[in-house]
Amino acid sequence: MNIPGELKYSKEHEWVRVDGTIITLGITDYAQEELGDIVNVELPDEGDEVHREESFGAVESVKASSEFFSPVTGKVTEVNEPLLDAPETLNEDPYDEGWMIKVELSKPAELDDLMDADAYQTYIQEESK
């Protein structure tokens, strides 16, 4: 299980890369493995508002559709458009090519509630018990 040390993690199995007030958001290696072969991704549009704990998109395998809930509040500044045409990227490279959206934070303090890599590692071990 790949859990890069420099990222932050949510309980919804999303990763966050922080760059000033802009964050990049994606789903973790654990999440993509649990979902299986991903065949479709739904993302918000650039300029949309996302809210903490509200759905910002969905990731779909052949027989399941999983909504993802945003760990942060803010405005979408960039969307990984190529991902929409190549959803398998989420399986192949979840932390890099498979990033989903960039968000300009309106409540940076929300980041404090995220886990670091070690805490996330423990979290998924607990969850899969």
Partner: peptide, 8 residues
């Protein structure tokens, strides 16, 4: 049948 291929 390969349903992943069909959808992707």
């Amino acid at each position: 049948l390969d349903e992943v291929k069909a959808a992707r």
